[in-house]
């Protein structure tokens, strides 16, 4: 334990006065708790935090925090956050969303955010279902799940494997957490925020309304990830072959400087003078 003075902000101080619309028992409450615990622990001033989301149940999260937030377009949270972080590197930028938002409609941005390695903390609350549109299959829904009338025979296609795909796309920090353990999850979130590159936290966050049938045993199913934090190429087959999707912990952590995002180039101190010089190029 670290003996310090009492923190100026407690976890609950990061909450806004807006009441979540989430169902009772929704896993996302645990993620909200974990996030506020991590922010309080890291002592980030509320005004220096921006939480960016897309559309879906979990994407409602920014408004529940007393921080800056943007509840934008379905699937586009990562690029919106990328623009913000590049323009304002002084901010702590957290991206929150669900499996449909992040892996389906926003799947391309997920790949390129992993590659681009901007310093973002991306929390995906994966409940393997589209909740807000009433229970359709998502990219992480098993192929034989038949409870959606949209896919009465099941989606029939293999599940998207977020951690393995993030690794293949070059993410420098990958963790998996469980919303039923907000204390444990807060460590992963805090580490992801501290990681100076793109950090992906895949959170198993059950949907009690549309997926009670096969998510009620997640608490028993999760287990510590045993093959921890290998940064070499072996981690790729390790995640692909060994990971059962329920291993909790940091799955991969690499030096984020191994590949880097846009460089900070020293600008001319006098902007007007810089423009004058640019205009002078246009003359003979």
């Amino acid at each position: 334990m670290t003996a310090t003075t009492t923190p100026t902000l407690r976890a609950r101080d990061y909450l806004s006065d807006i009441k979540p619309i989430w169902c009772p028992g929704c896993g996302h409450f645990g993620v909200l708790s974990a996030l506020t615990k991590a922010l309080a622990y890291l002592e980030r001033p509320k005004e220096d935090i921006a939480v960016i989301s897309g559309i879906g149940c979990s994407s409602r999260l920014p408004a529940y925090l007393d921080c800056y937030g943007f509840h934008g377009l379905h699937g586009r949270a990562l690029p919106l956050a990328t623009g913000l972080k590049v323009a304002r590197p002084d901010l702590t930028v957290i991206v929150a969303g669900g499996d449909g938002d992040g892996f389906s409609i926003g799947g391309n941005h997920f790949l390129h955010a992993c590659r681009r390695n901007i310093d973002l903390c991306y929390i995906v609350m994966d409940n393997a279902v589209y909740g807000m549109t009433k229970g359709q299959a998502s990219p992480t829904t098993p192929p034989d799940w038949t409870r959606s009338p949209l896919t009465p025979n099941g989606p029939g296609i293999p599940v998207f494997r977020p951690a393995a795909i993030a690794l293949a796309a070059g993410a420098s920090f990958i963790a998996r957490g469980f919303s039923g353990d907000p204390h444990g999850l807060s460590e992963l979130v805090a580490r992801a925020i501290l990681h100076p590159g793109f950090a992906f936290v895949h959170v198993l966050s059950p949907c009690r309304t549309f997926r009670p049938d096969d998510q009620s045993d997640w608490k028993q199913g999760v287990h510590p990830f045993t093959d921890r934090a290998r940064s070499d190429a072996e981690a790729v087959p390790a995640l692909r072959v060994d990971d059962d999707g329920m291993g909790i912990g940091v799955l991969h952590e690499a030096d984020p400087t191994a590949h880097s995002g846009p460089k900070d180039t020293p600008a001319d101190t006098d902007r007007a003078a810089a423009i004058d010089r640019i205009e002078a190029e246009l003359e003979v």
């Binding site: 921006a50 960016i52 800056y68 943007f70 934008g72 377009l73 699937g75 586009r76 990562l78 690029p79 919106l80 956050a81 990328t82 623009g83 913000l84 972080k85 590049v86 323009a87 304002r88 901010l91 391309n108 941005h109 790949l111 390129h112 846009p262 600008a267 001319d268 902007r271 810089a274 423009i275 010089r277 640019i278």
Partner: peptide, 25 residues
């Protein structure tokens, strides 16, 4: 030279969202 940034986005969906994010900032 003027202190700005340019990001080559993965597609136009991303590009316009990046603008919204930076402008929000």
């Amino acid at each position: 030279h003027t202190g700005g940034n340019l990001v080559q986005a993965e597609d136009e969906l991303a590009a316009v969202s990046m603008l919204v994010g930076a402008s929000f900032g």
